[in-house]
Design a protein around this nucleic acid. Structure first.
Lengths: 319, 319
DNA sequence: TAATTTTACGTAAACGATGTCGTTGTACTT
DNA sequence: AAGTACAACGACATCGTTTACGTAAAATTA
């Protein structure tokens, strides 16, 4: 008991006793047993992080930031991938809550899955990243999807492109809906009649679909790609079809990736603060866990910026 | 007790009783308490994975594979980043072993850290990925670094380049030493006198150093970059200095990255089976955990392949 | 049929830390 | 000097599960 009090920093332990305990701990190489602590209801000092795909650049940057922020407060991170499958996601959440973790950071693949209600009803705090959920109220951290998409398409409009198409993937996600809405807003504002929205499924199947779009008689002169995967698919398709990007067809993507500077012409894209997203979400979750944050759930929206390079038709990279 | 037997699949439970228990479990929404199970020494069905940097493409692909293989056997994965700092790495291992995990997958930042002895001496199985350790014997899974580097440099030699330089980072790592050795072997075999080994530190500091190398009077006509970071730094430097890659200077990198196909000219690189590395290591670890693998430690070396594209001077991408 | 084994369950103890409470000793009142 | 307050510590029960063991009843054997 005295050892327990010493370790947990309770008062009522004389300095001499504390010293003796410390020495014994060192001598015996004693470490408190984590499992026993859990059994008495202590915090585990660990959080769970569930993302669709670890190897996606965007999520790997987010994960890195989460890890860093958590470690700074001596928290460990469980990382799991849902592979965009709600069933797997539900199983991962289940495993984590029972393991147990003190809180969960979730990039939900669906916003209306019924199981989401259950986890939020439990006493494990949840913060969603990137995408909010609809069936329950949680803290969430995201970015300005609609405004960001508008910025991107506005830039294409200013270049004078008349036929701006939108290419997306996973269009059922709220983030994607918002970006597509931004695309529409911009066209409406500019009073453009041409509107062409294409949803891609996977790298393999997108090839044919993109080739059709890019070689049609009435083909677009500019493309807005709503996420990094579709941006990359467009770049691939243009390269294969030998269509000059930034000259024959302009391209602006949503979500900037490091190597976009290395491509010729370099790729203009909306930059999301991926690392900050992870940091902010983690700090918020840890505050919830420690009870430092009592108010009802908050939704934090981080701003995005348009990083202008060459694929939009600008001669030199500006930002 | 009967419930415990039922759940753990012990014999000596009548079908009727089992059914009753199942119904009660469903009705009460009962889930065994993980902490209590840990306390009695059961397996946690979780493993730890420690990599230097999650956002590095290579490690994110490895992590993805580990996650997948583990999940297939109902194992959860703790992912932590050591940030190439032995102190952090030791702390992460400590946290994990006490948390507890059934086994650890480690990409060690150092091969001689004394703490490594301790963890191997403990009863938590360890499998190292990519880099072996020296101070203790563990299972390890890696790739043919020396032979792969030789393949790469041989290819440059065959092109007829006379002055082939080697650019690396973290040259103290055994993997890097092996690749540099492969570079030397190839030059020795070809009886080339020119030999220039440059170790880069970080993106920022590498700029000036690279510029000096690439603009010197006696500058190389080909470069072998020993990992993906240095390959990317070289590409950046060439682009900034307006030196034509594959024409003015050839480039072959070690570790292939998806976007190398999107760069003009596309980048020739030694492809490591990153996903397989993760799969093999995880399967091996799980076998150790389940006692299915009793023999002394094994070292698995996976083959690498040279993916020939254009930056080496070849006109068309072959592979 | 009686002795023995096997099956199906329950009971007690243990894992290691912590909350509660009781006990002792010290300092401070009045 | 006696009473009160509180500091410092230990004993005991507790968390939820499993291991070890006990005890019947059922099945098998002699």
């Amino acid at each position: 008991m005295t050892v327990s009090r010493m370790i947990n920093g309770h008062p009522y332990v004389t300095p001499e006793t504390a010293k003796k305990v410390r020495e014994a701990i060192r001598k015996l190489n004693y470490r408190p047993n984590h499992a026993a602590r859990m059994l008495t209801g202590k915090l585990s000092r660990s959080i769970g992080l569930i993302v669709p795909d670890i190897s996606d650049t965007f999520f790997s940057v987010v994960s890195h930031a989460v890890q860093e922020t958590a470690r700074a407060q001596n928290y460990l991170v469980w990382l799991a991938a849902s592979e965009d499958d709600p069933t797997i996601e539900a199983a991962q959440v289940e495993s984590m809550t029972h393991h147990p973790v003190d809180g969960i950071l979730l990039v939900p693949t669906q916003s209306r899955e019924p199981y989401l209600k259950a986890i939020v009803a439990g006493n494990t705090p949840v913060v969603t990243i990137d995408r909010p959920i609809e069936v329950a109220t949680t803290d969430s951290v995201g970015v300005e999807n609609q405004a960001g998409a508008m910025m991107a398409v506005d830039h294409l409009v200013e270049h004078g492109y008349k036929k701006i198409a939108c290419v997306s993937a996973n269009a059922h996600l709220q983030t994607m809906k918002d970006r597509i809405a931004g695309y529409r807003d911009s066209l409406r504002k500019a009073k453009r009649s041409y509107q062409n929205e294409l949803e891609l499924k996977s790298s393999a199947s997108s090839k044919a679909v993109l080739a059709e779009l890019l070689t049609a008689r009435n083909r677009p002169d500019a493309i807005f790609a709503a996420n990094n995967a579709s941006t990359i698919w467009v770049i691939e398709a243009l390269k294969e079809l030998n269509i000059q990007m930034g000259k024959d067809i302009a391209l602006v993507g949503f979500d900037d990736v490091d190597f976009f500077t290395l491509i010729t012409p370099s790729v203009t894209a909306v930059r999301q603060p991926a690392a900050e997203l992870g940091n902010v979400a983690t700090r918020l979750l840890l505050q919830r866990i420690n009870g430092e944050f009592k108010s009802t759930s908050v939704r934090t929206i981080l701003p995005v910026t348009l990083t202008i390079r060459e694929s939009c038709g600008c001669r030199r990279a500006i930002a």
